[in-house]
């Protein structure tokens, strides 16, 4: 199991959210806040998954459309979307998702390895799978969300 970027804590709190038809989750410790969607200011020639930037109490926050980033079908954001403000290394990034679905507490042993069937894009972000009430929730890492090489492929 590729757990290179996930903290080693015995019990972990995760926040789960929906992007399109799929469910994902991230370590709750990285989440700063959750807010509703506001119109983002478009950045010139930005990669398609960067929707733009918004004002977060005086700081400029980039909004990453996770559907686009993960190669899933995406749609124009509406007021029903949610932005999860997450801390990734030294930066704060807004993740555009459909809705927050759950707060989970899990143990290491609850997380299984990802099967080799998903797309390359998904695999590069997914660190493991969580099974809950017949739902499959993918644990993702945000480290390379804004990674440089992909940026030029606008």
């Amino acid at each position: 199991m590729n757990t290179s970027t996930v903290e080693d804590v015995a019990a972990r709190e995760l926040i789960a959210f929906r992007v399109g038809a799929q469910e994902f989750c991230i370590n709750i410790m990285t989440v700063r806040e959750i807010r509703g969607w506001t119109m983002a200011t478009v950045l010139p020639r930005a990669p398609k998954f960067v929707r733009g930037v918004i004002n977060l109490r005086g700081a400029v926050l980039p909004i990453v459309d996770l559907a686009v980033r993960l190669g899933l079908p995406s749609a124009e954001p509406t007021a029903r979307n949610v932005i999860i403000v997450a801390q990734v290394n030294n930066q704060q990034i807004g993740l555009l998702v459909d809705e927050v679905s759950d707060i989970l507490t899990t143990n290491e042993k609850d997380i299984q390895a990802a099967p080799d069937v998903s797309s390359e894009l998904v695999r590069s972000f997914v660190r493991g799978l969580l099974s809950l009430d017949e739902r499959m929730i993918s644990l993702i890492s945000l480290d390379h969300l804004l990674a440089a090489p992909e940026l030029e492929a606008a």
Binding site: T41, R45, I54, G58, Q91
Partner: peptide
């Protein structure tokens, strides 16, 4: 600070309507 340099753009600001 939270993103990266954007060619053609020097910096950003927040306008009266709260938008960047």
């Amino acid at each position: 600070a939270n993103y990266r340099a954007v060619p053609g753009i020097a910096a950003a600001t927040v306008m009266g309507d709260g938008r960047v």
